[in-house]
Design a protein around this nucleic acid. Structure first.
Lengths: 269, 269
DNA sequence: CGATTTATAGTCTTCCTGACCATTAAGGAG
DNA sequence: CTCCTTAATGGTCAGGAAGACTATAAATCG
């Protein structure tokens, strides 16, 4: 980072690639385009494009998000930088460095609008064939990142419409993590976290028909989640077993008597 | 990510910037260079450099790490991509996109060796003046990332030499987090986590002189830490208090008896 | 030697969570 | 209308993890 004039440097093309997720019908969906030309013609790929001369990558990502989804206002959507992919051979034509972003959408309207949006479609994450370039890896990284952030942030509400039920929120977790959660426990945890959700006063929604109507909630002001809401088995970083460890002396403390208190966490007025 | 031939695109310079950390004398130190020329002449900056035509950013980062530290073998060091900084005006001379990396070193030998290494020096993280370019922000992001990863990974051992005591490991946490930990509890947690550390059979080290010799440990095979070892107060994602949140139907429950105990983290007395 | 320092070994209590069971409030079948 | 099903909501209970200590062991220093 010094002496620009002295060293020769290669010019790179810089692009952004977007992993755009939504939850539809209980399944995780991704926004993909079908490539019309070589290389990888006919293959699916992540939406994306070049970073323009006067743009930051962040700006370019949000612009592309608007173009590809056809949505007029993407300012409220969650968009976060994932990481940058820069293998020299990741694009056979030339040297392209790509900054990947992950975005979350509440509902999943099929993209419509001019130009780019027409090419994009929602596809279920599971059962996707191979994607163009290194987009398989980008997409897998994106899913893992989102799954991890659900644990210790309030990000899940980004998948939900402005008003939602706790059942819908729970389904976000179950869909992204791919494992079911206990409903009462999930409820308890969410409601005990100050600022995660706030109830909509008199509202309730009939949940599609059968069953008791569910109360509606809005996203709260909190962004972090302490303590976190952990997945049972970590998908990304499996603890390598350590079969022969001799730790944990087992406390064997006398069983504490019934706890009458309700004990929520947030307080501390 | 399509039609390269049809669109004009701006060539960017791509660089890597390194936030290299170590723990020395109980304080977090960073490897910095002093710039010799404009812009920001005389300012401190993160080490870094251009990504070469046939390199990935990862490769470039490791090469720069070797060059700037003067170490002959950096293959075992922890190096992870942080994020990419691409504001159009971040370098006044030209359009430069920088991929930032964070690296962790066990001990902190003053860099020596040819060329680049001579410019680099360890400086305490606390009390640093402003850095060149947007390196303040990169450095702050790096520290936050490392602090967060200590919570849910076994990363802390990357700051330690091959054999270390639990006291040294604890000091890593305390230094990066900036808050003291209870020693017996820390011990219990680390030893109860399979694969975090493994004891070196007959070894013990006199801890600088006074006190009982501490047992030596090596880093284990585990990478993840479940359940995590949480900081008490999140520095990065402070729950926005939610002063006026009306959520959580309120457990009523008479205000849980004042916790008579100290409640602050540092031990009392 | 005793005092100090540091490592290590417990104890106890509280809080969080997973696994349940119970109740309420809707719709649908007969 | 009544019973059954479905889903939301409200509880209980036991076990585990973590915070807050107290106690003991093994070195060095004065």
């Amino acid at each position: 980072m010094e002496g620009y004039d002295k060293h020769a440097f290669e010019p790179f093309a810089v692009t952004v690639d977007l992993a755009v997720f939504t939850v539809r019908a209980g399944a995780l969906h991704v926004l993909l385009i079908e490539r019309g030309q070589e290389p990888y013609a006919g293959c699916r790929a992540l939406p994306g494009g070049f970073v323009l001369p006067e743009e930051s990558a962040e700006t370019a990502a949000r612009r592309e998000l608007a173009e590809e989804t056809g949505l007029s206002d993407v300012s409220g959507l969650h968009l976060e930088q994932l990481r940058t992919y820069s293998e020299p051979d990741r694009d056979p034509r030339m040297r392209v460095v790509s900054v990947a972003y992950a975005a979350l959408l509440p509902d999943a309207p099929e993209p419509r609008g001019g130009g780019d949006a027409a090419r994009a479609h929602w596809l279920p994450y599971d059962g996707l064939g191979p994607l163009a370039f290194d987009h398989d890896r980008i997409l897998a990284d994106a899913r893992e990142r989102i799954g991890a952030k659900l644990e210790y942030t309030c990000l899940a509400t980004a998948f939900c419409p402005p008003e939602f039920t706790l059942g819908e929120l729970q389904q976000v977790y179950e869909t992204v993590w791919g494992s079911p959660l206990d409903r009462p426990n999930f409820r308890r945890k969410v409601l005990a976290t100050p600022g995660f959700v706030e109830p909509v006063p008199g509202a309730a929604r009939l949940t599609g028909g059968r069953g008791k109507p569910a109360a509606l909630y809005r996203a709260g002001a909190a962004t972090g989640l302490h303590p976190p809401l952990l997945r049972s088995a970590p998908a990304s970083a499996p603890v390598p077993d350590a079969a022969t460890h001799s730790a944990s002396p087992s406390p064997s403390s006398s069983p504490s008597r019934s706890r009458s208190r309700s004990s929520s966490k947030g307080r501390s007025s």
